[in-house]
Design a protein around this nucleic acid. Structure first.
Lengths: 191, 191
DNA sequence: CCTAATGTTGAGCGTTCATTCAATGATATA
DNA sequence: TATATCATTGAATGAACGCTCAACATTAGG
């Protein structure tokens, strides 16, 4: 029962199915066949829309990074309260819909794979730099430049490390605990 | 030219070759054939000694974790100086031979794969818990119990996060910088 | 020297993978 | 209603995978 205008719908379905498969089977175990089955379509259709498996994976990573970067923009905090801005960044990184076991697993899978796939590597580097430079910007309003850089590097690593360890906690990330650790780091850095 | 007593030598060679392949090709791209070629042996021999690809990978992860956990024991610091003990833990995690791009890449690859391989998952959890409990033990000599747990969780995440980000720096981890961030965290936690 | 144990290989098996391709179904437009 | 375009499928292909197995080479002990 094919209808016109299916392209965006199919693309979204297939990306969603790819998330599911990476979460369930890992990067190595994610095959086009499995993705197609999960999405309820044929193998041929996947390649019709994404050209190749690499194309599908790249689109999926783009979608993931977009998701992970979206939360922040919805908040509107006054620009003259840097600490509130940083707090918002921390909160957004541990918002409920960001730290699902599925999100963490897939995020980690891409992290590992990006080391061996130039296109994914570029996306990953952009994302890494973004968090750090955002933190640097707001911290530099509160601290001398060098201290701001130092604290931003630490805070960025701390956030990622909490994510990383969260991948192995059955319950997913302990959101409040993770948030408290980051806020504590921030408060101590500002003293 | 086969000789007796080759088993331990071959095992070591093959594990070494597996490191190389995981670093170069990633987890998904590491095949028995590539490992055998790198080690200069035949495909059959790999399976002769490790039974299966999974067996080889498990042995390789065991070897990696052993490497990463070795440094500490060589240091001997008096037990009545907890801060020195913690400093030694931090230093050992960023010791030169621990933070080679190869080590970080392989470590990260296993981290991602362990989520989908029960045997690797068990190894991984043991390792995660070890760092944290070591930190807890020494911190609890300097801080109230709850504060010690809090700081240990933060410091463990910070260390792992610095490793994680180091995977994407062309130069590998900036050892001194990473160390300074951790020591700074420690000092502030003890105030 | 013979034999048993160890070390090693390469061919071959069945499976699964990503990808190509020709063909068909459905819809909008003219 | 005709036609071009979009949506979709399933079969076919060739390569690569992990793994089995029979056979051979080398060595140590009796």
């Amino acid at each position: 029962m094919p209808k016109r205008g299916m392209e965006p719908i199919r693309r979204a379905q297939l990306i969603e199915a790819t998330f599911f498969c990476i979460h369930k089977y890992g990067f190595a175990g994610t095959t086009i066949k499995r993705v197609a089955e999960k999405a309820g379509t044929s193998v041929g259709l996947v390649l019709h829309y994404f050209g190749s498996k690499d194309g599908l994976l790249e689109a999926t990573m783009r979608s993931l990074l977009k998701k992970l970067g979206t939360n922040l923009q919805s908040d509107d905090i006054s620009d003259d309260d840097p600490k509130a801005q940083i707090t918002a960044i921390i909160n957004s990184n541990f918002a409920e819909d960001q730290v699902s076991p599925e999100a963490i697993t897939v995020w980690l899978a891409f992290w590992g794979q990006a080391l061996h796939t130039p296109k994914l590597s570029r996306l990953q580097k952009i994302n890494l730099a973004r968090l750090r430079s955002n933190l640097r910007y707001w911290l530099s309003q509160l601290l001398p430049k060098e201290d701001a850089r130092f604290a931003a590097d630490g805070l960025a690593a701390l956030i990622d490390g909490l994510w990383l360890r969260g991948a192995f906690e059955e319950t997913g990330i302990q959101r409040r605990h993770a948030r408290d650790i980051c806020l504590d780091y921030l408060n101590r850095a500002l003293k």
